[in-house]
């Protein structure tokens, strides 16, 4: 984890702990981007710029970021499933259960915190 020298003695399993935080890292990225781009969009007048069918550029960007992060979180399922197959024993069962729980929780959390972009006014207040 700390160096670039490959070594046969080095256990690789510590790296698998990344699966405990992968889902919520996607969540965090979504949160930061939604908050940041929203602030920029309202400040730079994206709300007044029409995109398609009456949706502003601002809202289109926010919904795009929102859906992309939900998709990215859900897409973690494939590599997680592939990796978890190589985790042996009771420790592997634990790591897999915890990772699956956290990945699902992270996707739900992403859906949850970003949902207001779908129905609230974008720059009011």
């Amino acid at each position: 984890m700390t160096d670039a020298i490959p070594s046969p003695a080095r256990p690789v399993s510590g790296l698998h702990l990344i699966w405990l935080v992968a889902g919520f890292s996607v969540w965090a990225s979504g949160f930061i981007l939604l908050y940041g781009l929203h602030a920029l969009g309202c400040r730079w007048g994206w709300e007044e710029a029409a995109f398609l069918g009456g949706i502003s550029v601002n809202r289109a960007v926010l919904i795009g970021v929102y859906l992309a992060h939900i998709a990215a979180g859900a897409a973690l399922w494939l590599p997680l499933h592939a990796a978890a197959k190589r985790w042996p024993g009771e420790g592997g069962v634990f790591l897999k259960s915890a990772s699956v729980l956290l990945t699902v929780a992270a996707v739900v959390s992403t859906i949850w915190i970003g949902a207001p972009v779908l129905f609230l006014a974008a720059c009011a207040g």
Binding site: L34, I113, A124
Partner: peptide
């Protein structure tokens, strides 16, 4: 402090969600 309401909504939702874990 005068942040747009939609931004408050993200944080409001997250603040409620934290009750779940």
């Amino acid at each position: 402090v005068g942040i747009p309401h939609l931004a408050l909504a993200f944080f409001s939702a997250a603040s409620a969600l934290v009750a779940v874990p």
